[in-house]
Write a protein that binds this DNA or RNA. Structure first.
Length: 324
DNA sequence: AAGTCACGCAACCGCTCGCGC
DNA sequence: GGCGCGAGCGGTTGCGTGACT
């Protein structure tokens, strides 16, 4: 378009504002109002471009700006709004009184983004990071020295299959179930995968709506696991092979791991109803959920909260803190 | 105590949008 | 419809500061 530069580059000051400049700008705007930003520096006696004045005013000098540390409620709101709006910092700022888009953007990049990454959540999609979500690692951490090759879920299932948290969790459950019964986990996991595949296109990821589809609600579907076919029943494979031995302690730990999830799953199988995890691996927080607000503010507490968003329901007695 | 490194934040830059002519 | 301009937005930069060695 060939537009002129926003200001004459020659003779105009750049860099940090001095208190004298702040005073000049504040006094002028409080007297005359913002008006035309291009004319403000000249009228206020500032050697700055209008753009610089506008930024200084909107991001720092405005009287309604809330300074200081973000509260946990604000941080939670930022995360939720970002999951809906994406990097629309001004839109997010509009919903957080007293906070500027620049401030929120900085806070996101320096704190929230890192925290989400640290807790295994993709800061862009707000979904669990699949590259980190190696259930095999969790299982190994949980049950100790089992041959890594027999716990390689990603190898067994393929990366795409891991896109479904429910399936992922069920596969992990199947692996533990197999180990408990001295089976090769690949057999049972394959059965689970076949049932998923044969159930049609039910492998819909349970995920947060993408930023560019802001009003899509999270999809949570029955994963399609059917127990109608006896030969495909997971239970039918119990006790076949005895090549994968766990010691007594490991079996005990597997029992703890399987406690809730397996019980629920077996109930579904026995009643011939659809299985839906009682503790979804990925549980996107509803935007309007006031229950998600936690009145804590330490880094550790926030980390814990963030990891709770998608954690596996693993008993506290198991030492998996290194992984988490 | 001095040097180095990492981090946080204010400010800048380049681009797009919307409006008036 | 095209152009010029102001305003706003999002990404990036660079400086100040505190932590660490």
């Amino acid at each position: 378009m060939g537009r002129a530069p926003c200001c004459d580059k020659n003779g105009l000051k750049k860099g940090p504002w001095t208190s004298e400049e702040d005073l000049l700008l504040t006094n002028y705007i409080q007297t005359h109002g913002p008006g035309n930003w291009r004319t403000i520096p000249k009228n206020a006696g500032l050697q700055r471009c209008g753009k610089s004045c506008r930024l200084r005013w909107t991001n720092y000098l405005r009287p309604d700006i809330k300074r200081g540390r973000f509260s946990f409620e604000e941080e939670e709101a930022i995360i939720q709004l970002h999951s809906v709006l994406g990097n629309k910092w001004s839109a997010i700022a509009a919903r957080l009184p007293g906070r500027t888009d620049n401030e929120i953007k900085n806070y996101w990049n320096t704190h929230v983004r890192k925290r989400l990454l640290r807790t295994g959540i993709d800061p862009v999609t707000h979904a669990p990071r699949l590259d980190l979500l190696d259930i095999s690692s969790i299982l190994r951490s949980a049950i100790g020295n089992v041959n890594p090759s027999i716990l390689n879920l990603q190898g067994l299932l393929g990366a795409q299959a891991l896109m479904n948290p429910e399936f992922l969790k069920l596969a992990a459950t199947a692996t533990l179930l197999s180990l408990k019964n001295n089976e090769n986990p690949s057999n049972l996991v394959s059965q689970v995968q076949q049932q998923f595949n044969s159930a049609g296109n039910c492998l819909v990821q349970n995920q947060v709506a993408a930023p560019n589809d802001p009003f899509q609600t999270p999809t949570h579907v029955n994963n399609g696991l059917s127990s109608s076919s006896p030969e495909n029943s997971i239970l039918s494979h119990l006790g076949e092979n005895n090549n994968y031995q766990l010691n007594a302690q490991q079996i005990n730990q597997v029992d703890l791991l399987l406690d809730h999830e397996l019980e629920h799953y077996l109930n579904c199988v026995n009643q011939n109803i659809g299985y839906e995890s009682v503790t979804p691996l990925s549980t996107p927080t509803p935007l309007n959920s006031s229950s998600t607000y936690v009145n804590s503010s330490t880094e550790e507490e926030r980390d814990t909260y963030c990891s709770d968003i998608f954690k596996l329901e693993i008993p506290e007695s198991l030492d998996i803190s290194d992984f988490l």
